[in-house]
Each structure stands twice: as structure tokens, then as C-alpha cells.
Computed example of a mutant assay.
Amino acid sequence: MIVVTGANGLVGSHLITALLAQGKQVKALYHKSHADVHHQNLIWQQGDILDITGLEEIFTEITQVYHCAAIVSFSPKDKHLLYKTNVEGTANVVNACLSAGVQKLLYVSSVAALGRAGNDKLISENNKWIDGKHNSEYAKSKYLAEMEVWRGIGEGLEAVIINPSIILGCSDWTKGSAAIFKNAYKEFPWYTNGTNGFVDVQDVVTIMTKLMDSHVNAQRFVISGYNLSYQALFTSIANAFRKKPPHKLVTPFLAEIVWRLEALKAKFSSSKPLLTKETARTAQQIISYNNSKLLNALPDFKYKAMNNSIERICQEFKSQYQLS
């Protein structure tokens, strides 16, 4: 029996589909409500990674754990929740794995936990974390969560960590990276000169299952298919939707104005800002990732062509939202 935390999220939901297709028995952990998916090998289990006793009961007779649950936010209002869920929650998962004698844990971290390379250098697993004001609270929480996994490894737990870049896939397009597709469909006109790493959720899931079923232990891997400019990505998605691509450049000066206006608006409306200081500045940066360690560890694996991924995901969104 395999446990998947964060079963309703982008990665968790696609992972469950893949595991069931492989004939695995899955216990999917959810917090409030779960997806309307039913299978003879699937058990939906309500739980909370902050509930220590509950986790120990859920992990009884479990062989593998995929820890996907996390809070992703760049809003200052969510600082406490970030550390509570991402750090304390991961510590609880690690302790439950140790207590239950789980064979292996795979933790879904983030490239944010690798810190920043500077000077346009490729970011890899060898990056040393340097604490500072340029790291978001989200990045800090994921770095500290990784430290909990390394602690578990030191105490005898077999585990592997993946650090995905921006994950592209079909889910609720009002949240997270899926909102990129909604903005493209709505013909959002703005783009920046920044670059980042992007990866198909199906590739992430394939890598996760391969690493879990391998002898790889006590390792971390950058999971990133391609380094692309935001303009190139947004244009590809718009073209796949047959929509007008972005054509207005957001300059650094304009971005600084917009995030401040968004912060002011959120303060008076009690809503979350659409753009924060961290997201505005990240979108202007040239960020690239080195994915060679993973490709060397899994020589038979190859990332999907990004254009093919975008076409497929756009078709999935069209079907999900009945778009023309």
C-alpha cells in the first residue's frame, strides 16, 4: 500500500492516476474534500499532516510514501501557514515514516529550496543555500522542510528529494501554475523578459515513480525539462488555444508599481494580491536549471517535447472547462 499526501493537488492527482495504471494500491490523503475518482485499488483517507497521531495510524502497514502536500504562496499573510504546513507538516510525515518502518519516502520539494545562483549561472543540486532577503518565505519553508527529510535520512529513513521547476499541467486554473493557461486563454497582453525552468506534470510523475522503485537513496534531483522565456511560453500556450499572444512588455519599473498597487488593494479588500513583490521580481530574472544529474541517474528517461506538452494540456483544459 502506498500513501500519497496532497492527493488533490496538481502533482498528487496525476501521480494517483499513474500509480493506479501500474496496478498499485493507493491510499490518497486529503484534507477537506477529495476528487470524484473511484477505483478498486484507491482508498480516499481524510487526514491532516499536522495531526501526529492520525498520521501514525494512516501509515500503518504502508510501504512507500509520496509527500506532495504543501502550501505554495507568496503572500505575506500566509507566512505562518507556510512554515506550519511545509516545515512542521513534513517533520510529522518523516517521523511517521520512521515510526511505521516505511520502506521509502519521496519528498516533492521545489527549485526554490536551491536558492539563487547569481550571475546567470545554471542552478543545480550543488547550489549552497544562502539565507538572505532575496529568498521568499516560501523558498525558506521548502528549504527547512528538506532539512527535515535529511534528518530522517540520518535517522535511517530511505528517502529521495525532487526539486521541480514550474510544473505545467491541467488542474484548477484559478490556482498556481495552472493560472498561466487561464491568462493565455483570456488573452492577457503582458509578458516579461525573464526566463525560468518548466516541466510537464506527466514527466514529474514518471520521474517520481522511477526514483521510488529504484535503489536511489539520500539524493536530491532538479526536475526541469526546459529553460524558456516567459514570452516564449505564453506565446506557445496562446497559439495552442488559438488566441492572441502577449504583446506588451512589463518593464522592471512597471512591475514595481504594479505589485505595490496590488498589495494596497489586497490590504483594503482582505483578498490575496494577484502579484506580490516576490513574483514580480522573479518574473524579471533570468533563471536557468541544470537537469543533467537526473538524466544521468535515469538514462532511459527523456523529457517530453514542450510544444507537445502544451498542446495536450490546452486540450485537457478545453475539455475540463468546455472551452471553444
Score class of each variant (00 low, 15 high):
Ser224Arg: 06
Gly9Thr: 07
Asn126Ala: 10
Leu211Pro: 01
Pro164Leu: 00
Leu157Arg: 07
Cys314Pro: 10
Ser110Asn: 01
Asn163Ala: 03
Gly9Val: 09
Phe198Ile: 01
Glu256Cys: 09
Glu155Cys: 06
Ile237Leu: 05
Val87His: 12
Ile167Lys: 08
Val108Ser: 00
Ser288Trp: 08
His134Met: 13
His67Gln: 09
Val108Ala: 00
Ile180Lys: 12
Leu20Gly: 05
Ala112Gln: 06
Thr279Trp: 05
Glu61Asp: 15
His80Ser: 04
Val37Gly: 05
Cys97Trp: 06
Glu256Met: 12
Lys27Trp: 08
Tyr289Asn: 01
Asn217Tyr: 07
Tyr321Asn: 01
Glu311Gln: 15
Ile2Asp: 07
Ile180Thr: 11
Ile16Gln: 07
Ile286Arg: 13
Phe253Gly: 10
Ser141Asp: 09
Ala283Met: 06
Gly23Asn: 13
Thr235His: 04
Ile161Trp: 00
Ala240Pro: 04
Asn196His: 09
Ala139Phe: 06
Leu98Gly: 01
Ser171Lys: 14
His134Thr: 15
Tyr303Pro: 01
Ser214Leu: 03
Asp300Arg: 13
Ser33Val: 09
Lys32His: 14
Ser271Glu: 12
Glu262Met: 15
Val250Thr: 14
Ser292His: 14
Leu20Trp: 11
Phe181Tyr: 09
Ile286Val: 07
Lys77Ile: 04
Lys272Cys: 11
Ala178Tyr: 08
Arg151Asn: 08
Ala139Val: 05
Asp203His: 10
Asp172Trp: 12
Val87Thr: 08
Leu55Ser: 02
His247Thr: 14
Leu50Phe: 12
Ile313Phe: 10
Glu148Ser: 10
Met147Leu: 13
Ala117Pro: 01
Glu278Phe: 12
Ile153Met: 03
Asn163Thr: 03
Arg242Phe: 10
Gln45Glu: 09
Thr17Trp: 12
Gly9Asp: 03
Ser99Trp: 07
Glu88Pro: 10
Lys304Ser: 13
Ile237Tyr: 05
Glu148Leu: 09
Ser271Arg: 15
Ala35Glu: 13
Ile130Ser: 08
Lys133Leu: 14
Trp150Ile: 08
Thr235Val: 02
Met212Gly: 03
Asn296Glu: 15
